[in-house]
Design a protein around this nucleic acid. Structure first.
Lengths: 364, 364
DNA sequence: CTGTTAGCGCCTTCAA
DNA sequence: TTGAAGGCGCTAACAG
């Protein structure tokens, strides 16, 4: 027993399907007030629900917004998804979700699937990769997106422009000043911190990670400091943990665990910058498992200011990013004025907290 | 310039649309190998992408799975969403997302929207409410779901059966033994804890919250203890924080902040059970803001074992729930055998950690 | 094995 | 203002 159709409603109301369509959906003013009422009654007496597929076919537009993320359970993407969802709701559209773990091939497939569903626009979040291994994948992804745009689709990108994108037509990118913010973070840290700096980065080639690393190094240079060592690892909690274990060994070698690390002016305490909060938390866990304490034995900072992590102790120094707003802005047509192509930027804010406090006393 | 159609492909390949359809989509074995090749070439020379809307219209099935959550940025729902996504992928379907903040009216609307899109099945996560204020909303939601089922849709529910659901036809619920697990948690806590118990609960009427409260009280009774006080508040971090502030006042009045709370056998230390992890974290933050320490001045436990919170210190005692699996199982047709209606259950595990350790020493 | 003929449910000209 | 006809793109019965 399939759902009832417009035709059935029309018949019950004693009018033509066209008329019924007009009162139930068509935006032009409803025909004869008497007729309208009759149709409406018929409609909900039958529990009529318009078939969006048919509507979409007829009008060639679907009311769908495709969203591509690496992993919806990652709080970074979840926050962005919330923003996208809000914007979609504002446009009376629904969001279609695809997760890809960052694989360009999967992303290409997702774009194709969205195109097949005739999504009105698609939002692609998550760092692009510039690794040579992904080169072909990226090219294919770009081609797929270009085709989608050429067919009238609009795409919103978070962070960077799509790697090989051709026309700017239809693309809409939300720029995140990763490099600038990382530089600022480095400068502020350098001002109050005398020890050595280390960076826990994602895989080489991950644009977001690379940008943050570059920015941080630049900031150190601005402060007259030498570049920091860079540890490349996974862009997630586990990666942070592994790097943390390695650093714990280094610190241990220098005799970190001992009571207090020289209260003097220049303690040799390490200052760690993890390119995102989740990695920072992983690193912290690793250090702790080795008996090291933050900020006493090492300072640590992250990036993103993930909401769920705000109650973490010691409070994590980080760079606040307006994740939800980023999601909202990434939806084409939802931004502040800028309708079609173009770039809108957001700003973040360096937020220094306990985890990088200078003379890290025992937390008691 | 719209995307190219099957007809165009067929023409280019010099065959009928039906044939083209057969090679490109129809599962029956591809016709003449030569023809097939010709069609395929034509297809991707044109960059053909099948129109899923048209396919759906023709076959009346859409390859869509609707997912309803309160808030996609809530780690609880995000984890479930990941599971749903995985199951969807397994079925070659895509997931449509709707967020409702728990409002029955919005949920009803979401179900209608999914029905309009002819979603093959819909998964509804998040606690149902039994408040009288929501009574009508619930009834309408149930009606909408029933109608959806009657039209051949299948719905998966996380936690409880839908409140007013009529036929069991098409419903598929993933049972979570909230009450039993909460009881077990209470018993284990009671065994090692001598102080008073308090519960930070969600709004009265929220089924999940109510179940956990009931279970916890039962567990206390099993241990021969009197029922705990119950504070009703928001089912989120803020709710937990507010309740935490109130409790901090109580504890303070009893002189909690003082160094050590009696190392003796029966310290009057409060043991707090927050009905979910996020609330527990909020409460912890509140206590800390008042100078109280966990587990020294109060013990605290949560529920869910949210992944992002596992590195929290002091490690939070909680009940581990296989959130991702729950999401996976909630998708109709993805479960272990059980195809249509029915109930599958999952189990959780009481996980005691530092936050409820008996003689809470200063964390140093 | 391939082509032809009908719809799927709706919207949109075009007449009336 | 309302009804009739055609088509959106594809698939599913039938013929051939």
């Amino acid at each position: 027993m399939a759902a009832s159709t417009l035709t059935e409603v029309a018949r019950l109301a004693g009018v033509s399907p066209a008329t019924a369509s007009r009162v139930l959906n068509g935006s032009a003013r409803t025909p004869g007030p008497d007729i309208a009422e009759r149709v409406r009654k018929a409609a909900d007496s039958l529990g009529y629900i318009p078939n969006a597929q048919a509507q979409g076919l007829a009008k060639s537009s679907s009311g769908l917004i495709g969203l591509i993320v690496h992993d919806i359970a990652d709080p970074y993407f979840a926050a962005i998804a919330r923003g996208v969802q809000a914007a979609a709701r504002h446009q009376n559209k629904m969001v279609l979700l695809a997760t890809t773990a960052g694989s360009p091939a999967d992303e290409r497939a997702a774009v194709a699937a969205f195109a097949a569903r005739r999504a009105d626009s698609i939002v692609i979040a998550g760092s692009r990769s510039a690794r040579t291994a992904d080169k072909q994948g990226n090219a294919e992804l770009a081609a797929e997106l270009d085709r989608y745009c050429r067919n009238g689709g609009r795409v919103g990108v978070v962070g960077h422009a799509v790697v090989g994108a051709e026309s700017d037509e239809g693309y809409h990118v939300v720029g995140v000043p990763n490099e600038e913010l990382a530089a600022e973070l480095a400068r502020e840290l350098a001002a109050s911190h005398a020890g050595e700096f280390v960076i826990i980065a994602g895989p080489e080639g991950l644009l977001t990670s690379d940008d943050r690393v570059r920015g941080f190094q630049r900031g150190l240079a601005d402060a007259g400091l030498p570049p920091a060592d860079v540890l490349h690892t996974g862009f997630d909690r586990t990666g942070g943990y592994e790097a943390g274990m390695e650093l714990a060994a280094r610190i241990g070698a220098h005799g970190g665990s001992g009571q207090a690390g020289a209260e003097a002016a220049a303690p040799p305490r390490l200052c760690i910058f993890a390119v995102n909060d989740v990695m920072a938390i992983g690193a912290t866990a690793a250090l702790r498992s080795k008996g090291l304490r933050i900020p006493r034995d090492a300072a640590i900072a992250g990036f993103d200011d993930i909401e769920t992590l705000r109650d973490f102790r010691p409070a994590l120094s980080t760079v606040r990013l307006p994740l939800e707003e980023i999601g909202r802005l990434a939806v084409p047509g939802a931004g502040s004025g800028t309708v079609g192509a173009g770039t809108v930027g957001v700003t973040g804010e360096v937020t220094l907290r306990r985890s990088t406090e200078p003379g890290g006393e025992p937390a008691s």
